[in-house]
Nucleic acid binder design. Structure first.
Length: 265
DNA sequence: CTCAGTGTTCAGTG
DNA sequence: TCACTGAACACTGA
């Protein structure tokens, strides 16, 4: 379920498990898709004996800062996550890589559907896919003027823009829908035809939704009850929000989009 | 059995 | 160049 808040939760898990610690051993599986053409041996060699100085995130991309390059990069795809544990028998299913600290802490990346990727970076911020990411709405939200300018110069449906990682890094399908619902803007509205007030509302809702989701470590049960999130799944004809508003579904920006016509103009 | 799906990328069209 | 669509990737769970 990885959009920015889920990936940020993963970043914290990785830091808690490995920050300041040295990787004593790396277990790998054979998976050419997730490993993205890196031979398991090469990956293990890059990590073994290294100290994890920090775990960084931009948008949905994660990477470890080690005491020596190359640094490993992780993308969760549709189904990835990090799991921390101590005992080998707690190793989760669908694990793709497991890193052990010298103290015996273990961190595994899990990737059930194999759309995730593991990479090696020499300089992540200057290399793809991190280099072409837009601003991270948690760490580096644009000020109102810059935000409005960057929205205005595009000519796409606002939903499609929010999903564009080179615009706002880390926004995925449910966050885009949630932001537009709270900002009262219909997803198919074109970016060059939005009013200043609407763009301002989108900006503040984006900030608020992401902050809130990160605060609760992306635990959906703790998202506010008023959020569209809790009612948007399943494309049910009868779907309504907590306020009783009817939810409609359509494909916009290539993704299933949920919105409330009576609220979003 | 069918199909949708919290993501990304690429080919093809206009 | 830009905007947009559809397909591909992969595989589970409803």
């Amino acid at each position: 379920m990885p959009e920015l808040p889920e990936v940020e939760a993963g970043r914290k898990i990785a830091e808690r498990a490995l920050r300041g610690r040295t990787i004593a051993h790396v277990n790998t599986v054979q998976d050419t898709i997730v490993y993205h053409k890196i031979p398991p041996r090469k990956l293990a060699a890059a990590l073994t004996g290294r100290t994890v100085l920090a775990v960084h995130r931009k948008g949905k991309q994660l990477w470890f800062e080690l005491d020596r390059t190359p640094w490993p990069g992780f993308h969760f795809g549709m189904t990835g996550s990090f799991h921390a544990y101590d005992a080998e028998e707690d190793r989760p299913t669908f694990w793709k890589i497991e890193m052990l600290s010298t103290e015996g802490h273990r961190l595994a990346m899990v990737n059930k559907r194999r759309l995730g990727r593991i990479r090696l970076f020499d300089d992540p911020l200057r290399e793809e896919p991190v280099a072409s990411l837009g601003f991270d709405p948690l760490y580096e939200m644009r000020d109102a003027k810059k935000f409005a300018e960057s929205v205005f110069k595009r000519k796409v449906a606002i939903k499609a823009l929010l999903l564009d990682q080179s615009f706002a890094a880390g926004v995925g399908n449910w966050i885009a829908d949630e932001v537009l619902y709270q900002a009262r803007v219909a997803p198919q509205r074109r970016t060059d035809q939005l009013g200043k007030k609407e763009i301002g509302a989108i900006r503040s809702c984006l900030k608020r939704v992401i902050r809130r989701a990160v605060e609760v470590d992306a635990d959906a049960d703790r998202f506010p009850r008023t959020w569209l999130f809790h009612h948007r799944w399943g494309k049910k004809e009868s779907a309504v929000t907590a306020r009783g508003e009817k939810i409609r579904f359509a494909t916009i920006g290539g993704r299933t989009t949920a919105w409330v016509p009576e609220r979003q103009v």
